[in-house]
Design a protein around this nucleic acid. Structure first.
Lengths: 137, 137
DNA sequence: CAACGAATTGACGTTTACGTAAACTGCCGT
DNA sequence: ACGGCAGTTTACGTAAACGTCAATTCGTTG
C-alpha cells in the first residue's frame, strides 16, 4: 500500500463501506452483470470504472429503477459508436428514459407542493393552538 | 344509474381500468390498509376519496416508494389537527420526505444531464458518419 | 506457526408486491 | 330457468433483490 500506483483500486469491503451497501449486494450486482471487477488471485479488484458504475447503479436504485432498467441505462453510458441503426435505437431508448424521468419529476413536484401545503396547515394549527407555549422565536 | 346522486361512485373494475391496474392490485392495497372502500352488500364501492388515495398510491409507486412509505405519506394527507406533539412529529416526517424528494430530484437532474450528453454524442456520431444517408432535414 | 480478519463460493431463506387459479354469489338479459 | 358477467374470498405461486448462514482460502500479524 506504500507504492505509488497511479490507478486507484478498491476491495469489495472498502467499496461497500463507502457506498453504504453490503458486500453481498455488490456481488449480486456482479451476478446480474452490472459489474465485472478484475481479479487479483481470487479477490475482486475494483477500478475507477467499476466505482463509477456502482455509483450509477445506486443512483438508479434511489430513483426506484429495477436491475433490468439499470442494466439498460448502464448500457447507454458505454455504447460504442456502432452503426447508424444502433445509434438511432439508442436515441430512442434515451427518449424513453427521458420521458420517464420527466414524469417522475412532475410527480415529485406535485408531492412537494402537497407536502408544503400540509406543512403550512400544521404550522397554522400550531400557531392557533397555544401561542404562549410556542417554541422558537 | 338514472337518479342524480351527487357523489360519484366507482366499482373496482372501473377504477382498475381507469388507472391501468388489476383488481387484484386494488384489493391488495386494501389488505395493506391503504384503501378502505365502502360496501354495498359485499361489493366494494369507491368514492372520490378512495379514488384520490389510489391516485396518490400510484404516484408513490412511480416514485419507487414501498407500500410502507406510501402508507406514511397517505397518513400525512389525512392527519387531523391533533395535539402539538403530533403536529411537530408530522412536520418532522414531512421534512424527511422533502429531503428524500430533493435527493431524488437531484438524481434525476444528474441522469437527465447524462442522457443529454450521451444523446449529443450519438447525434454527432450520426452526423459524422454518412452525411448523405441522413434522414430528416 | 497459529490465529485473526477479510475475502470467496454455494446454498437456502426472506420480504415485497403482486399473479393466478378455484370455488362461490348476485344480478341481468333472453 | 339459464348462461354469462362482475365481483368476492381463500390460497398457493412467483420474480426481484437481497439476507444469512456455512465452509473454505488467503495474507499478515503477534
Amino acid at each position: 500500500m506504500a507504492d505509488g500506483d497511479g490507478v486507484q483500486e478498491f476491495s469489495i469491503g472498502v467499496l461497500a463501506r463507502e457506498f453504504g451497501v453490503t458486500t453481498r449486494t455488490i456481488r449480486y450486482y456482479e451476478d446480474e452483470g452490472l459489474l465485472s471487477p478484475a481479479r487479483r488471485g481470487q479477490k475482486r479488484v475494483y477500478g475507477p470504472r467499476e466505482r463509477v458504475r456502482l455509483r450509477l447503479i445506486l443512483r438508479g436504485k434511489r430513483l426506484g429503477f429495477s436491475i433490468a432498467e439499470i442494466r439498460e441505462i448502464l448500457d447507454m453510458y458505454e455504447s460504442e459508436p456502432g452503426e447508424a441503426g444502433q445509434l438511432r435505437h439508442l436515441i430512442g431508448k434515451i427518449a424513453e428514459r427521458r420521458a420517464a424521468l420527466e414524469r417522475q419529476r412532475a410527480d415529485i413536484d406535485q408531492t412537494m407542493a402537497d407536502m408544503a401545503e400540509i406543512e403550512a396547515r400544521c404550522e397554522r394549527a400550531l400557531a392557533a393552538m397555544a401561542p404562549a407555549k410556542r417554541r422558537a422565536s
